[in-house]
Write a protein that binds this DNA or RNA. Structure first.
Length: 465
RNA sequence: GGUCCCGUCGUCUAGCGGCCUAGGACAACUGGUUUUCAGCCAGUGAAUCUGGGGUUCGAAUCCCCACGGGAUCACCA
């Protein structure tokens, strides 16, 4: 049975787009194999918890359409799915490790640890705990009992080397000398990430751990833990991190990284997912656009790319444009209405409906709509007209005589007028365009004028005459 | 710095020893459609496959080294 999971930590304001990319792979792999995709909240660092963060993350995941089979929201057979609610479990397992001699108590003060690390670094040594407490376990235990001393539990890294298979990177071998005696249980009773993931992934029967490559260096510790418990190893698949254009990992310093930022821009969840699917993976037939369903069918963790891709918002927008152009007009209308309503802007449905055919090929995301169409709803600040725009009056007079206010007719009459006046079409229409819309870039002019209506057009021209 | 990962057009990638004088997509540029901008269509440029050594009849593909980039080294995840 294939079971995958994502384990977000509510230490940010929202879900990072990179997390969506790995969530997508986890989702796809579970679905492809008719297994389950679970969401587990790893909130063990109470000092970094962002209020409302968990709520927001779950909400975003929901908006994006990656439904979890098990999560804090929907529950499941291995509940609770929030680590802060599983404290007694970690404690039990940590103690078990101490009992079997695979871990030990440590009462060293943070100050001592900090100084030790500093000294080691100064001497260019590998910063590692010196096992002071390990070598004095009896006394340490006595002190903890007698004085109620705060303490942690550390993993005793065995000698030798640790080896494991990574689905995307092959065999990974590391000399254990490079590993520190990792704290497993903190003095506040919360587990560290390392204990938490291993225990939960095992208990929740996670078969494949697909996560960012940032975890690769600490995976040997996890492997050691699995073996210390005598548990079977899951399959590990470390995927590359999304990068900034300068190749550093995608960060909010250099790029918008919160998923809802893109969604709130009017990027479709499907388009975001589709674009993200192309980061480190490619369709067997070379297709660029495909549905989630198709992705699930074609995806295989063995095909995941090892090199790290640069996140390109330009291509994302192109992808979204593809989706917009394939959206039915009536649906696109509703989406635009809804999109702006969420931003507290109420648009006239009739106008939006009429403008859709004109803008569908001109917008790449929903938020492109208003900048392009604002003049339909109200007169906008006008660009200044060229000095030789005196023929605006003729335009006004000509339009005034039109009785059948249709784009085609308006176009014919304007063309005639331009010819009569001896003005180049491009110049003439640009002038009219600015007079009517205030801008140089607009949807097709004749159609726009039809939508605006004769009265409104004349009014706008009149103010210039 | 130690450890680990990675290295094909500007970007995303195809490529799994001969089909590669390296293919596609985005971006760029040119032309067409045209009343602006898009869209659409046609086309152009863009990678000595990071470099150097091997292995092989033959290497982008396998091996080694160098260089470059990244990640990671907490009672953070």
């Amino acid at each position: 049975m294939v079971r995958t999971r994502i384990a977000p930590s509510p230490t940010g304001a929202d879900v990072h787009v990179g997390s969506i990319a790995t969530a997508l792979m986890n989702f796809a792999w579970a679905k492809k194999n008719h297994g389950q995709f679970v969401i587990r909240i790893e909130d063990t660092d109470r000092t970094r918890i962002v209020p409302g963060g968990e709520e927001k993350m779950l909400d975003t995941l929901n908006r994006i359409g990656l439904q979890a089979d098990e999560s804090p929201k929907v529950g499941g057979p291995y509940a609770p799915y929030r680590q802060s609610e599983r404290l007694s479990i970690y404690k039990k397992y940590a103690e078990e490790l101490v009992a079997s001699g695979k871990a030990y108590y440590c009462i060293c003060a943070p100050e001592r640890l900090a100084k030790m690390r500093q000294d080691q670094q100064a001497k260019k040594q590998i910063p590692k705990y010196d096992r002071l407490c390990f070598h004095d376990q009896k006394n340490v235990i006595k002190k903890i009992r007698n004085d109620q001393l705060p303490h942690v539990i550390r993993l005793l890294i065995p000698d030798g080397e640790t080896k494991f298979q990574d689905v995307v990177r092959g065999e990974i071998v590391i000399n254990n000398e490079n590993l520190d005696d990792q704290v497993l249980l903190k003095s506040d009773g919360f587990p560290t990430y390392h204990l938490g993931v291993v225990v939960d992934d095992h208990l929740m029967k996670i078969s494949h751990i697909i996560r960012g490559e940032e975890w690769l260096p600490s995976t040997p510790k996890h492997v050691i833990l699995y073996r210390a418990f005598g548990w079977e190893l899951p399959a590990f698949a470390h995927v590359s991190l999304l990068r900034n254009p300068d190749r550093s990992k995608l960060s909010k310093r250099k790029n918008p990284v919160w998923t809802s930022w893109y969604l709130d821009l009017g990027i479709y969840p499907e388009a975001l997912l589709n674009y993200l699917a192309l980061m480190g993976w490619s369709h067997p037939e070379g297709k660029e656009k495909f549905s989630l369903e198709e992705y699930v069918e074609k995806f295989d963790i063995k095909d995941i790319q090892t090199s790290a891709p640069v996140f390109d918002p330009v291509k994302l927008e192109w992808m979204n444009g593809l989706y917009i152009r394939e959206t039915k007009n009536s649906i696109l209308k509703d989406q635009i209405l809804e999109f702006y309503k969420a931003k507290k802007v109420d648009l006239d449905e009739k106008i939006v409906e009429k403008t859709i055919p004109l803008v569908k090929e001109r917008i790449k995301k929903l938020s492109d709509y208003l900048p392009l169409c604002e003049f339909f709803f109200q007169p906008v600040q006008r660009l200044s007209l060229e000095k030789d725009s005196l023929y605006i009056k003729s335009v006004y007079e000509e339009l005034k005589t039109i009785t059948d206010w249709k784009a085609e007719i308006i176009g014919e009459r304007m063309l005639e007028l331009a010819k009569k006046l001896g003005i180049k079409n491009s110049e003439f229409f640009m002038t009219v365009r600015i007079a009517i819309s205030g801008k140089k870039i607009t949807p097709p002019l004749n159609e726009s004028m039809e939508i605006l209506g004769k009265e409104e057009c004349l009014k706008r021209l009149d103010s210039l005459v």
